[in-house]
Design a protein around this nucleic acid. Sequence first.
DNA 1: GGAGATGGGACAGCCATATTGACGTATCTT
DNA 2: AAGATACGTCAATATGGCTGTCCCATCTCC
Lengths: 173, 173
Amino acid sequence: MAVPSPASQFGASPNASPLFLREEEVRRGVELLYFGYTRLTRSIDEGLALEGLGRAHHRALYFIARQPDLTVSQLLKILGITKQSLGRVLNDLSSRGLVETRAGTSDRRQKLLRLTAEGVAFETQLFEALRNGMSSAYAAAGQESITGFWRVLEGLVPEEDRGMVLKLQGMDT
Amino acid sequence: MAVPSPASQFGASPNASPLFLREEEVRRGVELLYFGYTRLTRSIDEGLALEGLGRAHHRALYFIARQPDLTVSQLLKILGITKQSLGRVLNDLSSRGLVETRAGTSDRRQKLLRLTAEGVAFETQLFEALRNGMSSAYAAAGQESITGFWRVLEGLVPEEDRGMVLKLQGMDT
DNA sequence: GGAGATGGGACAGCCATATTGACGTATCTT
DNA sequence: AAGATACGTCAATATGGCTGTCCCATCTCC
């Protein structure tokens, strides 16, 4: 067919370029990352809507569940948003009784965030959807693919953030 | 330490549960997917800001570049947004001379979307950042990891959407 | 003990991106 | 000719970000 090949509308013939495969591989990764991320994310929207919350609330909930007693500034760094934005989210969560705070022990200016029992129950319920999606993708792909999946994604995280991510996962090295 | 283990604040001792590893693996995937996606995405913000555009514009630009002459309804399906939302984005893009439309050949109600020469140049420039990020992650992980990365992500895309994704990538089977 | 730095909170206003609902027009199908 | 389809548009609303500014409590350091 005379239809232009993808992403080469004004370029050379696709198979002539030595970079063609590389570009195809990159685009494939970009697209799968986009669709994989958005579809997994969508899987929790229904559960969130039941509580009148959004994805921003889930992200906070998730990381507080993941690392109880983390401080507001740690959470800010993880989420990469401003404290005003996070403030709104945390207010919503605590007014619903899902999150509670205590003053820091060594530094009383800090607030240590953790989930209430209701918060744990809610996060667990939302996590079910994530678990289902990830588990079936893992199962279909096999263990070797899983480690490859992790390795590539780690490489996508900039050096300066990688420690933060691995620390969440108990890989302090 | 007596600090509660992540995600088991009210649960059993982490190493006692037979599901612990699985939960850890799932959370690791969820987190890496989140950080990998957001960090890659951020890498194009600067380029977009130069044109006064946002990520929504880039997504449209990307998929039009990827599959020239796709129709509005095809793009709507790919992006999973409403036509009102897409309408605004497409208006921005065509008023900047980045996207042009032609009437469909077999069905003149359709509009076939493609990039102008300026649009191609701009998308190519943005793609550079994506290529850099993905390429270095690919290079660091190795070919076997790359295929694993793809396999897991494919598994995250629901059955009903998988054909659409693979078609973009020229894998019509 | 006092000065300044830091952790956290809050008010105000704005922007980007999405939504629902209703309606209009051109074109295709039957 | 009638209805369905592809696309566009107006209007109102929600979400989740942002900047700027100011505040209080507490810690650190001289």
